[in-house]
Amino acid sequence: MDTLTQATLTQPKIRFATVWLAGCSGCHMSFLDLDEWLIELAQHVDVVYSPVGCDLKEYPKNVDVCLVEGGVANEDNLELLLQVRQRTKILISFGDCAVTANIPAMRNLMGGADLVLKRGYLELADDTRKLPHAPGIVPELLDRVMPVHEVVPVDIFMPGCPPSADRIKATIEPLLTGHKPVMEGRSMIKFG
């Protein structure tokens, strides 16, 4: 009997979540690249919130492990992240956008949100030049896109754009048996 199976028999299931903030969802795609290991993972975890694995719309309480993809770019991202932090034991910054703010943060070079919106919706618009404004529907942009750890404390950093399925597995697998993954070396922490 391998250790994983043994752990499953002796311990209750881990409440597992993934969230998607400002990112391309590539990290989630890479997560799906885990292929058959996903089935094994499902034996050890309950997926309680995830854009690719669960239909719940509200982030539940008492989550054990959460992968957070994406930077913090708008008010919705911020609100969800604060909730995630308060309800989660181990928060993993999942991919370069979460760890460095990465591509979404390229807009930071232009200055504040107003300048970005002006550029995108007025200056570069082909027709229908109009700033988006739909309170409650379209979330307001934050002035700067931030990596997750600039907003809340993060427990594990998993860089990569996206992190490969192997890296994701190497990060999650030890957690299932109560061990902290070793985030070292090219295979685990190379950016990009």
Binding site: S93, T100, A101, H149, E184
Partner: peptide, 14 residues
Amino acid sequence: IQVGMDHTRFPYRF
């Protein structure tokens, strides 16, 4: 990678 940097603790300046 060599120095084991998995994230930077300083705010990005952009």
